[in-house]
Design a protein around this nucleic acid. Structure first.
Length: 486
DNA sequence: CTGGGGAGGGGGCCC
DNA sequence: AGGGCCCCCTCCCCA
């Protein structure tokens, strides 16, 4: 015969013991605050503690001490209360950090609850988006009784140095502190949609380790979306399809992550190293947010970088000198890097920021080197290879030909062959091979670059400016050649 | 349908 | 810290 109340009473007793510091044999130090608990309870509740306690001293007469700096005491209190009561006090304010901490501590039950919490909030958000937006539009900051979206964000902002805002700052608030905004936005979304939820007094740093598999697709910022739409206009396919497939693949993998949340090898616990938090399913959150709230994802890597919480620094391993080696963890995925600068660069793949536009075709790149490579390859015919026969060519054995903004090299043989097929009779094939774009077979109907002195001056290597001889002609040519641009 | 190549994106690391 | 190079991977186009 099972007495259902036994478990409850047992847990209740353990909780009482904890509160009265009876038989507590484990001290947990979180940012200087000490929590007392029972080893066996922690062992049974957390994969992290299970590993920690199984590795720690066999001498049970001495209390075990665990130290954490990656989440706040308030967050750990929520988790510890859950461990001893089964009640998880989630709020819109703390859900992200609780989720981060739970992931760190390998407490999948809490993780799942957090996921459900967030997802349900987002679902509500999606359904009530119109209503919500209309409310935001109607309510002004001068109406304290009806906080607007903006006020809600401000209220939840965490960075005390940014708490003194003048009215003129309102317009720039969205990107003013992206990291805090992210937290605040989420908080405001959840708290607005779920007014019954209590608001934390502490708008603390976000513990936002949202993870995603390596080489996943980009989060789409407005800028990136704009870029994509531009590309769509330009290419009627091409890389756009790549991006969408990339994104769908990312979602598939994220779904995979969500379904296989527990066991991933790549960031699991290593007996010889410190813990890197296991894979976060919060990636789902990122996906949801990027879908539902593109403005939220309009983050700049620099801004993210400067407003990152301290959780980003993790000790991943120990070097030969037995000193901890610091690595920097991406808040959006599982990736860690040795240098902050590398993290900054990496963040662009999440923000979608593409600060390097090609002046010739408008395509944007995340890195200058990529732009340079693109420009040299596409617009400067930098490769000394005949595009048709693939043989090595030089300025003596071949020449540069132009198709719209694309330039490439052809050897004289291939050039002559192309000229026979496609060059209008009234043109001098030696110097002006005009394409007849739009015709697939006109690929080799070419326009040799007409090098005026001015053009030559602007075609210096690494000069990322392309000279349009005639805007009207160039635009027309560009328009026609766009489907071939990638 | 398939394989090769081009182009782009991202990570590691050196300067 | 930024720039740059090298390498690898993925996607897409095309033969």
């Amino acid at each position: 015969m099972e007495i259902s109340s036994h478990q409850f009473h047992l847990l209740e007793q353990l909780n009482e013991q904890r509160k009265q510091d009876l038989f507590c044999d484990c001290n947990i130090l979180v940012e200087g605050k000490v929590f007392k608990a029972h080893r066996n309870v922690l062992f049974a509740s957390s994969g992290y503690f299970k590993m920690l306690l199984s590795q720690s001293s066999k001498d049970t007469s001495q209390p075990t001490i665990a130290t954490f700096e990656v989440f706040s005491p308030e967050t750990f209190m929520v988790i510890l209360d859950f461990v001893y009561s089964g009640i998880l006090s989630l709020t819109g304010q703390n859900v992200i950090e609780v989720m981060s901490a739970a992931s760190y501590l390998q407490m999948t039950d809490i993780l799942n609850v957090c996921k459900t919490f967030i997802k349900s909030s987002l679902d509500i958000n999606e359904k009530e988006k119109d209503h919500y937006l209309s409310l935001s539009a109607k309510r002004t900051n001068n109406d304290p009784a009806h906080p607007s979206l903006y006020r809600s964000r401000r209220k939840a902002k965490s960075n005390p140095t940014r708490s003194h805002l003048i009215p003129d700052e309102k317009a720039s608030m969205v990107n003013e502190n992206s990291w805090s905004n992210y937290n605040s936005y989420l908080s405001s979304q959840i708290s607005l949609q779920r007014p019954e939820m209590q608001l934390s007094k502490r708008g603390r740093k976000l513990g936002p380790t949202r993870k995603r598999r390596k080489h996943l697709g980009l989060s789409q910022t407005r800028d990136f979306v704009q870029y994509k739409s531009n590309k769509t206009e330009q290419t009627s396919g091409g890389c756009n399809a790549s991006d969408s497939s990339h994104t769908s693949r990312a979602r598939e993998e994220i779904q995979f992550d969500a379904e296989n949340d527990v066991d991933h090898d790549d960031y699991g616990y290593n007996q010889e190293s410190e813990v890197i938090p296991k894979r976060w399913s919060v990636a789902q959150l990122e996906q949801e947010l990027s879908r539902n709230s593109p403005e939220l994802m309009e983050l700049k890597a620099d801004e993210l970088y400067t407003s990152m919480p301290t959780i980003l620094g993790v000790m991943s391993s120990w070097n030969e000198d037995d000193l901890p080696r610091m690595r920097f963890k991406c808040p959006f995925c599982t990736h860690t890097v040795k240098r902050r600068a590398d993290l900054k660069r990496h963040l662009r793949c999440h923000t979608g920021e593409r600060p390097y536009p090609c002046e010739a075709c408008g395509k944007r790149f995340t890195r200058l080197e990529h732009l340079r490579s693109h420009f040299q390859t596409i617009h400067q015919a930098g490769k000394l290879i005949c595009r048709k026969c693939k043989r090595h060519v030089t300025d003596v054995t071949g020449c540069v030909v132009q198709q719209g903004t694309r330039r490439y090299r052809l050897c004289h043989e291939c050039l002559a062959e192309a000229s026979f097929d496609n060059i209008p009779d009234d043109l001098d094939a030696e110097h002006s091979l005009i394409t007849s774009p739009g015709n697939k077979h006109s690929k080799w109907a070419l326009e040799e670059e007409q090098k005026s002195d001015e053009e030559t001056a602007e075609e210096e290597p690494y000069n990322l400016v392309i000279q349009h001889v005639d805007d009207a002609i160039s635009d027309e040519a560009d328009e026609k050649v766009k489907p071939n641009l990638r």
